[in-house]
Computed example of a mutant assay.
Amino acid sequence: MNDRYVRQTVLPEVGDAGQARLAGASVLIVGAGGLGCPVMQYLAGAGVGRLAIVDHDVVEETNLHRQPLYTMSDIGKPKVEVARVALQRFNPGLQIEVHAERLTPQNAARLVAGADVAIDAADSFAVTYILSDACQAAAKPLVSASVIGMTGYAGAFCGGGPSYRAVFPEVSVDGSTCATVGVLGTAVAVLGGLQAHLALHLLLGLVPTVLGRVVTFDARRLAFGGFGFAGSPEPDAFVPFIAPDAVTTDDLVVDLRSLEEAPASPFARARRLDVETVTSLATPLPSRRVVLCCRSGQRALMAADRLRERGIANLALVALG
């Protein structure tokens, strides 16, 4: 056994057998940003044999206070490529596979199929639901986290436990993001480190399982909390996310972004409404599929809930990024 792991193999919860399990494991990491950096570093440090990293973004200077895997010289470079070089330099024995693309409804199932555990580190509503749907269908565990400001959570879903949709069928519509509200780098590091720990817990098969549990963290009060959700029922029906190129000319497309936010819509015949006025579509009830679009998917999810309450069930969502 490699001496680099001796300080963890001495643990009875790991041992040589556990280290061998980690070496043979594959983890999908979606998001190479603030949450993804500690996830990647700690899983690579623990000796997880294969890491598949998905992120379409490039390094920006505003990332550096919470993404210490990157440096000033990396600005403008694809995050996944910089991460691959850094991780292979850190632990050359690992297989690092990178995908410089967004997670989409088209590629999610394929990416999840090759993983033992999937990690949602993208902090995106659309990615979380798309990844949860793919993991639920493939019976693969999902570790998801989110941090805004100085608070956040991490939890373990699917893989025999309830899906993210079972626990969070609805979302807030306040639209807060790291760019608008801000985020403290150390709060992100705590939650990203917790994600890595949850993944190792699952890969090692420790008991009791972390599936069906959420841990919350308030960095202002230095308080941890959480709750269990084992046994939560799956929703009878849900509105799926689709890719922009899956929208057809027969669809009634609604762009929920304001003209100030997005002067031009990628859909030529899109109607411009917001979450408050989208219920006008219910009079009369449309005969074709309604596709709701916004930047992150958050407003689309809220609008879909309002339309379903008014009897419109043929719906789809698009996150335009």
Rank of each mutant, 00 (worst) to 15 (best):
N2Y: 09
D3Y: 08
T9E: 07
P12C: 05
E13R: 11
A17N: 12
G18Y: 07
A20K: 15
V30T: 07
G36R: 15
G36P: 04
V39E: 03
L43V: 03
A46S: 13
A46Q: 06
L51S: 04
V54Y: 06
E61I: 14
N63F: 00
R66F: 00
L69F: 05
Y70R: 11
T71K: 14
S73K: 15
G76H: 15
P78Q: 12
V82G: 06
R84T: 06
R84M: 08
R89F: 00
N91P: 01
I96V: 15
H99R: 14
V112G: 01
D116G: 12
D116E: 07
A118W: 05
I119M: 15
A121V: 07
A126S: 14
V127N: 02
Y129L: 05
I130G: 00
K140R: 15
S146K: 04
I148K: 10
G149H: 09
G149D: 08
M150D: 05
A154V: 12
G161E: 04
V167A: 01
S172R: 15
D174E: 14
T177Q: 05
C178I: 13
T180R: 15
V183F: 02
V190S: 10
L191T: 01
L202S: 01
L206D: 01
L206K: 14
L206M: 09
L206Y: 04
V210T: 11
L211D: 02
T216G: 08
F217N: 01
D218K: 09
A219G: 14
G228Q: 13
G231L: 08
P235F: 01
P235D: 02
V239R: 03
I242D: 04
V247P: 04
D251P: 13
L252K: 13
V254Y: 11
D255I: 13
S258K: 15
L259E: 12
P263M: 08
F267H: 10
A268R: 12
R271W: 09
L273D: 02
D274W: 12
D274K: 12
E276R: 15
E276W: 08
T277Y: 10
T279H: 10
S280Y: 13
A282P: 07
P286L: 04
R288W: 04
V290F: 14
M302Q: 10
L307F: 10
R310Q: 10
I312M: 05
A313V: 08
N314F: 03
L315S: 04
L320Q: 15
